[in-house]
Amino acid sequence: MAKRIVFPCYGDSDVLEYLDFNVNKPNEHEVVVENKAIGINYIDTYIRSGLYPVKALPSGIGTEGAGIISDIGSKVTDFKIGDRVAYAQAPLGAYSQYHIVNKDLLAKLPDAVTFEQAAASMLKGLTVYYLLMQTYALKKDEIFLFHAAAGGVGSIACQWSKIIGAKMIATAGSDEKIAIAKHNGAWQGINYNAENVVERVLTLTKQQKVNVVYDSIGKDMWLRSLDCLKRRGLMVSFGNSSGPVTDVNLAILNQKGSLYVTRPSLGSYITNKMELDLAANQFFNYVATEQ
């Protein structure tokens, strides 16, 4: 008998229930991971609240964790019992002592990276990987704008951009958070509750604006982000912390310089084991060497 957290209906955190369950045997391509740490992410609140509906209720929650393989399916050859592994795109149910995961969703965890580090950062790290390396490939010395830069994804993005050599203009909601972003590697910071974001970006770029804006805030930052972009610049909207961007008039993209907009997700960038290994190996190598 093991423990897990489920929710029988949509709602606030009080709908979560802590229950006993029996751990099933894995199918032929699956493994059982004995979780040593799990990741708690903002997207979990979207799922619990019903903003991102699940297929059926009651449902488990959480997609990220790290631990040791305790059982394997009959056709699993690239992992063995006792391997240290991490995952970020598993089926819902990671808030659990044991989780059954398809082998192609697992990454081997280097000894230099702890379970806690992996569970706390893998989803965010893979997100930063696709944002900065694939959605728009940042170049050395390139200036760009990144909102909410003191949060989980933003903190990793600050460090990753420093490794690349790109110059992040980081926004956050307080001077204390700006200090965190700059400590993590941001080039400049803007307190969006006390400063005019567009005017500061124009000053920092000598009126040139930026080629790309990364925004996880959503509706409250939408128009300000567009006004920070160069002609034919790219708006990367990857979150909704202030609410989703809705009722968009596409003509505004033309009016502001034939802008591009994308709404990417990790599931569209990491779709198979090869892509997962490439991203996870690079991220975990950074974690291991930058400590």
Rank of each mutant, 00 (worst) to 15 (best):
L105R: 12
F146E: 00
Q159R: 13
K80I: 14
Y87K: 10
N184D: 07
P110T: 13
I100Q: 01
E64H: 05
A66C: 07
D111F: 12
E64P: 12
T77I: 11
W160L: 08
T77W: 05
T171I: 13
V113W: 14
V76W: 07
E116T: 15
P91L: 09
A157S: 10
F144M: 01
D111I: 14
M133G: 04
E116I: 15
E176A: 15
G173M: 13
D71N: 14
V128F: 03
D83F: 10
K177A: 08
P91H: 05
M133K: 13
V76F: 09
M122E: 07
K103E: 15
S121C: 12
Y130I: 04
I72F: 11
T135K: 03
N102A: 11
Y129F: 14
A170M: 11
V153W: 00
I72E: 05
C158E: 05
S70N: 08
K140W: 00
Q159S: 14
A150W: 00
K162G: 08
G65I: 00
Q134I: 12
G93C: 09
G125D: 06
I72T: 14
G173N: 08
T63W: 04
A112F: 02
F79V: 13
D175W: 03
L131T: 02
V113C: 09
G67S: 09
G165R: 11
I72C: 10
T77L: 13
Q159V: 11
A181P: 08
I164A: 10
A66M: 04
D175Q: 14
A149I: 03
I68S: 05
L105A: 05
L131D: 04
L92C: 06
A120F: 03
Y136P: 00
D104M: 04
G151Y: 03
G65V: 02
G154I: 12
G73V: 10
L105E: 11
